[in-house]
């Protein structure tokens, strides 16, 4: 992890000094344990704040749309895939970017760490190889980091950046034999009433803060449909029908574009498993088109193009 930090700082310094980029987008060490803050660095003497560890779950591709500068950006596998999606959707130009690819071993979920500590408050979390050492008042415990992988990282099959200009380290082996959709299949098997109940319970804690949407690199619409006011499309309160409308429509809008980076779930302050919706659509796109978003820059994504042999049995 330290080696990535050094490499990011070194590359950032070089690119800024040589005038190759106007700014570098990366992370700086957070003010609380197991959190880091996205940061933009514009001058070579500021690069020592750049930082990397296993709590860099924020998807930095979210900071690219509508920017016009030349930007170096730190990108894990998922971030790089979202950069590819941005390029395909015309949100940023390839020549603007220097992608600092971060081969990734999975990001860690601080809530899982909290869960394991049984009410004790972590004040420090340090990594040592595959170990996560958590310290607090009167305790110090060491865990295997694999216990705390974010749910999406545990089933990730694209840990290496799909597109990059520099690498922060050697490419890592991809996870094999992963079944990405056990949970989706379990929900598909429920009868409609039970499935409805499942979604109701899933969304019950929602407070309409839109952290899921705003953490998502795909959600760059200048005006989101829930923010349309003339005319207004969706109620603003906590009526379940409005909450459902927001989550379902947002998920549909991400179909064939979502890279399962987990930014939505990570951001949710009330712990909603938002990926349950996007994963179903990801699975459908895979089943129909054998397509995964953001892997290949060339060509158009399936939901963005018409082919005469497209499956259309759903039109009745």
């Amino acid at each position: 992890m330290l080696t990535y930090t050094n490499k990011i700082q070194e590359l950032a310094k070089r690119l800024l000094t040589e005038g190759k980029v106007d700014l570098v987008i990366g992370y700086r060490q957070g003010t609380i344990p197991m959190m880091n803050e996205p940061v933009q660095v514009k001058s070579a003497d500021q690069t020592d704040q750049l930082y990397w560890d296993s709590f860099c779950g924020v998807n930095l591709a979210n900071y690219l749309p509508r920017r016009t500068e030349r930007i170096a950006i730190v990108a894990k596998g998922c971030d790089s895939r979202n950069i590819v999606v941005h390029l395909q959707e015309g949100q940023v130009k390839r020549e603007q970017l220097v992608i600092l690819g971060a081969p990734c071993q999975g990001m860690l979920d601080r809530r899982k760490v909290w869960g394991r500590l049984d009410g004790l408050e972590p004040l420090k979390a340090l990594e040592d190889g595959q170990q996560l050492i958590v310290e607090g008042k009167g305790f110090k415990q060491s865990f295997d980091r694999s216990e705390f992988l974010q749910d999406n990282c545990a089933i990730c099959t694209h840990r290496n950046p799909a597109l990059y200009d520099e690498l922060l380290g050697d490419l890592v082996p991809e996870q094999g034999g992963v079944d990405r959709y056990t949970d989706v299949r379990a929900i598909e098997k429920l009868d409609p009433e039970a499935r409805w109940q499942y979604f109701e319970e899933l969304l019950a804690p929602c407070i309409r803060c839109y952290a899921c949407r705003n953490a998502c690199p795909l959600c760059y619409c200048p005006t989101c449909f829930v923010d349309e006011s003339r005319p207004q499309w969706v109620g603003k309160g906590l009526d379940q029908s409005d909450i459902r409308t927001f989550h379902f429509l947002r998920a549909f809008h991400c179909a064939g574009r979502c890279t399962d980076c987990g930014a939505c779930e990570r951001a949710c302050p009330v712990g909603i498993k938002v990926r349950q919706f996007t994963k179903k659509l990801e699975k459908d796109v895979w089943d129909r088109y054998q397509f995964e978003a953001g892997i290949v820059l060339e060509g158009r994504p399936p939901l963005d193009a018409f082919r005469p042999d497209d499956q259309e049995e759903f039109i009745k």
Partner: peptide, 24 residues
């Protein structure tokens, strides 16, 4: 820079009092 303009801070905050009035 880092802000994503979500409402987490305001909705979790005990002193944020702003509201919106809507007819449904």
């Amino acid at each position: 820079f880092a802000c994503i303009n979500c409402g987490t801070c305001t909705y979790l905050c005990p002193t944020c009092w702003c509201f919106d009035i809507q007819d449904e």
